[in-house]
């Protein structure tokens, strides 16, 4: 079973992800800020990180650089409400960039792609 770590400060949305991804057969862990995400990755690296960009304290883009510094093999999906971050080239080092939507199929496809891509 693959482990997914979700970092999103929006608690209700994080709950939705947790429920949906658990249904998909993943083991899901949720944190609400970047700092905690980094600690969690150091202790116990997941198979995939889903990272929100706009969070209190350290934002997702900054966190991404930290995290890739710790473990550059860790697949990361950026998931945010605001599509314009796409233009920030710092976000391009993520494996995927998914704009938040009530339809989680894009996110699920991205997760699947990234996880199976890792296997090869």
């Amino acid at each position: 079973m693959k482990n997914i770590l979700i970092a999103d400060d929006d608690q209700n949305l994080a709950l939705l992800y947790e429920q949906e991804l658990t249904d998909e057969g993943y083991r899901v862990d949720v944190v609400h800020d970047a700092q905690t995400a980094i600690e969690r990755i150091k202790e116990n690296p997941p198979d995939l990180l889903i990272l929100d960009i706009r969070m209190p304290g350290m934002d997702g883009i900054e966190a991404l650089n930290h995290i890739l510094g710790i473990n550059n093999q860790l697949p990361v999906i950026l998931n945010t409400a605001y599509s314009n971050h796409k233009d920030n080239y710092l976000t391009w080092s993520a494996n995927a960039y998914v704009v938040k939507s009530s339809d989680l199929s894009k996110l699920k496809t991205a997760i699947n792609d990234v996880l199976t891509g890792e296997r090869s």
Binding site: L13, Y82, S102
Partner: peptide, 21 residues
């Protein structure tokens, strides 16, 4: 508009997501 986009998309995604589920 960036702020408002953010403020609207999060709840929308949550509402729609739970409705679908």
């Amino acid at each position: 508009s960036a702020r408002i986009a953010h403020e609207i998309r999060n709840p929308l995604a949550t509402i729609g997501g739970f409705a679908r589920s």
